[in-house]
C-alpha cells in the first residue's frame, strides 16, 4: 500500500492550506492539483487510499468537476470524494445540489460557511474509513495509518525505500503550468 493521499482540486489553495497540518500530523500526502488528469494519474495505482476534495461552482457552466466525481465513483469507488462549493445557495438549492452530487457518488457535499475544523473532521474521518476498507485493518489499531502494509504480491519495500514519500509535500503544485 502506498501512503494515503489527500488530493485537493481547487482554484485558490485555501483548502490545501487548511489541511496542511492535519496531513503532516497523520503523515498523509497532501496533493494540491490543477487538473482532472493529474487526479487520475495519482489514483492510478490499484491499492491507493485517498480522499479527494473537488471544488465545484453551482450554476457555472463548468462540467469538469462534476464529470470527475462521476468518473471517480465508477472507476475508484473506494476513493472518498468530497464536493466543496464556496457559493452561498438558498436552502432549497443546497438540498437539490447535495442530492445530485451524492447521486454522482460524492461522499459529502460542503457549502459555506467553510471552516477548518469541519474540513479536518471530514477528511480525517473519511480517510480512516477508506484505510479500514481498502487495507482491511483498523488504522486506530496500528501505530501509524500511513505505514505501508502488505498488499497482494506488491512489495512494500518500494514505499519505505523512498524517504521523500514520507514527507508531506510542499503546497506548490507539481504540475504548475
Amino acid at each position: 500500500m502506498r501512503l494515503p493521499q489527500v488530493i485537493v482540486w481547487e482554484a485558490d489553495g485555501w483548502m490545501a492550506r487548511q489541511l496542511r497540518e492535519l496531513a503532516a500530523e497523520h503523515r498523509w500526502l497532501l496533493r494540491p492539483v490543477r487538473s482532472a488528469q493529474r487526479i487520475h494519474q495519482l489514483l492510478s495505482p490499484p491499492d491507493v487510499c485517498a480522499v479527494c476534495l473537488i471544488q465545484f461552482e453551482p450554476w457555472a457552466d463548468r462540467r469538469e468537476p462534476l464529470e470527475l466525481i462521476a468518473q471517480l465513483h465508477r472507476s475508484q469507488p473506494d476513493v472518498a470524494v468530497v464536493a466543496v462549493s464556496d457559493v452561498k445557495l438558498s436552502e432549497a438549492e443546497r438540498s437539490a445540489w447535495t442530492a445530485a452530487l451524492f447521486d454522482l457518488g460524492a461522499r459529502y457535499v460542503l457549502f459555506p460557511p467553510l471552516t477548518r475544523p469541519v474540513l479536518e473532521d471530514l477528511v480525517s474521518g473519511l480517510m480512516l474509513a477508506v484505510i479500514r476498507r481498502t487495507v482491511g485493518v483498523d488504522p486506530a489499531l496500528t501505530s501509524a495509518a500511513s505505514q505501508p502494509a502488505g498488499g497482494l504480491g506488491h512489495s512494500s519495500a518500494a514505499a519505505s525505500d523512498h524517504k521523500d514519500d514520507h514527507e508531506p509535500i510542499d503546497l506548490v503544485d507539481e504540475d504548475e503550468p
Binding site: A80, F102, R107, Y108, D121, L122, G125, L126, A129, V130
Partner: peptide, 13 residues
Amino acid sequence: FVAVDCMGLQPYL
C-alpha cells in the same frame, strides 16, 4: 441515491 457513510462521517456532519 444518497449513501451516508456512518463510519467515516462525524455524527454532527
